[in-house]
Every structure is written in structure tokens, then in C-alpha cells.
Amino acid sequence: MTRMLLAPAYTSLQGDPLSNNDMKAISAHHYKKLVNLTESSVTYRSHLLARSKGAWSKLSGGAGRWIFERFMSRIYTYIFALANILHWYGGFGLFNDTVAAVAPNAAHPHRPALYLAMTIAFYILLVCLRSARNLLASPYFIVTDGKEATYLFTTRFKKSLNSSRETALYVLDCVFSVSVVGSLVVFVWRGTWALLDIFLFPEEPVKSYISSLVVGYGVMIASFSLQAPIRWVVARLHGTPRLLLADVYHFVSFIATVNVWRGVWGMLDTYLFPDTPKLSNWCSHTISLALLILLNCSNSVLVRGVYIDAEEPAGECVIFPCHYLRLFFHKERTKKRHRLALAAAAAASARKSEELTGLPL
């Protein structure tokens, strides 16, 4: 089917279809361009990461260099965020179009069953790929802005460009991580969101959004309260039981995440300049982004690679990386220890120089 869809593009100027050899040559040419583009993007990302390290402390660095690198990292994050949004926008639209093609009438009695069946099918695929944890987002995930957090992210099979032979595997890994795992996540989100729209007070939008907020934050508080005992149990399980318990815990947390997003989103649509949607959208976009940058956690809006279910040792697989204050104070303590170590080393060097100067010739 793919060949049939791409055949019109592989025609000569005279309108004659290209031969199989010509199509293979063109495919090889485009694949080579894709490989070169991938290598260039990874090289550029590595270059940005290398530039950002020690921007303040290097001999060629300083305040100006540090500010410039911070600015560049935020631009990189913003472009990455736009790519994520376009992916999600397209996934939501594709899901909606599929449902509309099967059941064109919005009042069709089988529409809810269709939404449910598609959502369950996509979720099962995620579980089979051991990628169900990727359904989670803020408030369960908070990523502070840093060098590694900005420029480094994982793929499903964790391939890298250590050699030219691994380029093809890396390209396939990236394509699979985005087009398969990422798209499945989008579809499950859309299906769950649509089911909430159908069953949670559909005739009363404000009541529906408030209910989503109550359910979302209520389940979130419960899930965080149960994190310690769940971690204890998971640490003592092995194999399939450990994986299933982690998936159930992540699924409950996902339900909380969707409800929180839906509730906040709906309340903004209802009360933030409802008569001027463009102004409402621009205000929520710019103000929220500015606050995230000021709070040093703008990376939280990104899809940070692909997580593998129950990959971490013991019970760490059910611990959510959302320790904003803990990370902040940890960074400050690390910086303080580094400054003290440098000061102690400088003092020791000065004392040694004085001792050597005071020695008789």
C-alpha cells in the first residue's frame, strides 16, 4: 500500500512511471539525505551541549557567554515544544477523523464503544511494548532546565551514533520512538479525554471541568500517598508481577493526569477571555511559558524521550521525578561545595607557595 501511495511522486517529467530500479535509487538517495540530516541534528545537539558545559567557568566564557547559552537552550526547548504540540495536534485529529469515518453522526449510539475499544487497543499495545509509563506528564513529571535535561533524551532501544554502522539503527530507533510509541501515547490520551467528555456531565461543561479537577487532584494525592508502600511491594516482586503492579500504578496516575489537564484546559476556555479565543490562547501560552522559564523548569512541557516500564532497579520504577525543590536545593548545595573545594584548594596552594618562598636557599 505504501508503494501505491508513493508511486505518483515517482514519475518522470513526461508522466511515465519510473522503473523499480529508479525508485530504489531515489529511495536510497532520500535515505542518505535522512541519515545525513539525522547525523547533522545529533551533531548540532552535541555541539550545543558541549558549548553549554562550563559556559561561566571556561576561559572563553563569562557572564555574557552564560546568558547567551541560556538563551539558546530556551530557544531549543521552545522549538522542541512546538514539534511536540504539532505531533499531538495531528494525533488528536487523526483519532477524531477515524472515529468520524466509522460513526459520522456525533449522536451515534456506538460512538462511546468505538472510543473505548480504540483506547483499550492502543493501551494494550503500549503495555506490550513496555511503554505505558510514557502516558504520564505533569504534575507527575517535573524537569528542571539544565544542560543534560535540555539536550539529551532517550529512545526506545537506546541506540546511539557511536559509529557510522549504527546510523541506520539510530534512525530506525528515533522513527519508532516517535511514530509508534509517541503516537500510541497521543491516541490513548485522546480516547480517554473523549470518554470523559461523553460521560462526565456532558450537558454541564463547568461542572464537568470542576469534576475533572477534583478527580484528578484527588487521585494524584492518593497516588503520592501510596507511593511508599507501592515502592516497598514492587521492590520485593520480580518478573511479570512486578511489571503488572507498576503498570497498574502508572495507569491510575495517568487517569489523574488526564483529568487535571482536562479540568485546567476547560476552565481556561470557560473563564479566560472566552469571547476572544485567540487572546485567551496567547495569554495562556506566553504567561505560562514565561513563568516556567523563570522557575527554571520549562523542559517540563516536553516529551522527554521514551521510558521503559519497570526498567529501574528495585522500587525506583514507581518514583516520579517531580522533586522540584529537592533538586533546586541539591544543585545549590553542590555549587556551594564546589566553591568551598575551590577556595580550599586555592588556600592550600597559597600556603604551599609561602612555605616554598620561606625556605632558605
Rank of each mutant, 00 (worst) to 15 (best):
L125M: 14
L125C: 12
L126T: 14
V127K: 05
C128N: 14
S131F: 06
A137K: 06
A137W: 07
S138I: 14
Y140S: 06
V143D: 07
D145Q: 11
G146V: 11
L152R: 01
L152P: 02
F153T: 12
T154A: 13
T154W: 01
T155P: 00
R156A: 10
F157A: 02
K158S: 09
N162H: 01
N162D: 10
N162S: 08
S163F: 02
S163N: 10
R165A: 14
E166C: 06
E166F: 06
T167I: 09
A168S: 12
A168I: 12
L172R: 03
C174A: 13
V175W: 10
V175A: 12
F176T: 05
V178P: 01
S179Y: 01
S179R: 02
S179G: 06
V180C: 13
S183T: 12
S183H: 09
V186Q: 03
V186H: 00
F187G: 00
F187K: 00
F187R: 03
W189N: 12
R190F: 05
R190E: 12
R190N: 09
G191D: 10
G191M: 08
T192E: 08
T192N: 07
I198A: 11
L200N: 10
E204G: 05
P205K: 05
P205D: 15
K207W: 02
S208P: 12
Y209Q: 09
S211L: 04
S211H: 03
S212T: 12
L213V: 07
V214E: 00
Y217V: 13
Y217E: 10
G218P: 03
V219R: 07
M220I: 04
F224N: 12
F224Q: 13
F224P: 00
L226G: 07
Q227C: 05
Q227H: 01
A228Y: 03
P229T: 04
P229H: 04
I230G: 01
W232Y: 08
V234F: 10
A235H: 10
R236N: 13
L237D: 06
G239I: 07
T240L: 14
